[in-house]
Amino acid sequence: MKQLPKLQLLIMNCLWQADEPIGLFEITEITGLERGEVSVNIRKLRNKNLMRVTSHGKTQRVRNLYEPVISKSEYVELLLLDVVEISSEEEIDDILKFLDGEKKHEQS
């Protein structure tokens, strides 16, 4: 999987952090993005099958709510699999050493 562009990742992070599906209004409030920017990127994320629409209506007005199709950890796993596919064994060893060093740094 190709890494998501910044705005799409920002929207996905909103969805991943939400306890329940959220609407366009909530996404614009959290991200500070314009409604049009959010709408365009929601459409792109739906086309990539990374989010889905659930419609809810407590009154006569139906409201679209959005939720992720994959978890953040699944997304990261897909990115890492792509890195592994294009990397040599030496590069993978370097990545693992780097990550191990970062882990030890965080623990101290």
Rank of each mutant, 00 (worst) to 15 (best):
D94A: 11
N64V: 02
D19T: 09
Q17E: 15
P21V: 03
L99A: 12
K104R: 15
N64E: 10
N47C: 07
L78K: 09
Q8Y: 00
E29P: 00
E29H: 09
V84H: 10
T54I: 15
L33D: 05
G23A: 07
L96F: 11
M12L: 11
R61Y: 12
L24N: 05
I30W: 06
R61Q: 14
I30H: 04
K72H: 12
T31E: 02
V69T: 11
R63W: 09
E102D: 03
K97N: 10
R61W: 08
M12H: 01
K103D: 08
Q60F: 14
E77K: 14
L65S: 03
Q3D: 11
E26F: 09
M12R: 00
L50G: 01
V38L: 03
D93A: 14
T59Q: 12
R35T: 10
K6N: 06
R52S: 08
L45A: 02
L79V: 06
I92H: 11
R63D: 06
L80I: 07
F98G: 08
E90P: 00
I70D: 04
S73C: 11
M12C: 07
R46V: 02
Y66A: 04
V69I: 15
V84L: 14
S73Y: 14
M51D: 00
F25I: 15
E20N: 10
L65M: 14
T59W: 13
R43P: 01
V40H: 02
P21M: 01
K48N: 06
V83Q: 13
S71D: 08
T31P: 00
R43I: 08
L80A: 12
V38P: 00
L81I: 09
H105V: 05
L10Y: 05
R43L: 05
S88I: 05
L24T: 07
M12V: 00
I86N: 08
S108V: 11
S87K: 05
I92Q: 11
L10V: 09
R35D: 09
E90I: 09
S108Y: 14
Q8A: 02
D93K: 12
L96K: 10
E89I: 13
S55R: 15
E67H: 05
D93Q: 10
I95Q: 02
P21Y: 03
L81Y: 12
L80V: 08
L80W: 07
K48W: 07
I22V: 15
K2N: 10
S39G: 03
L24K: 06
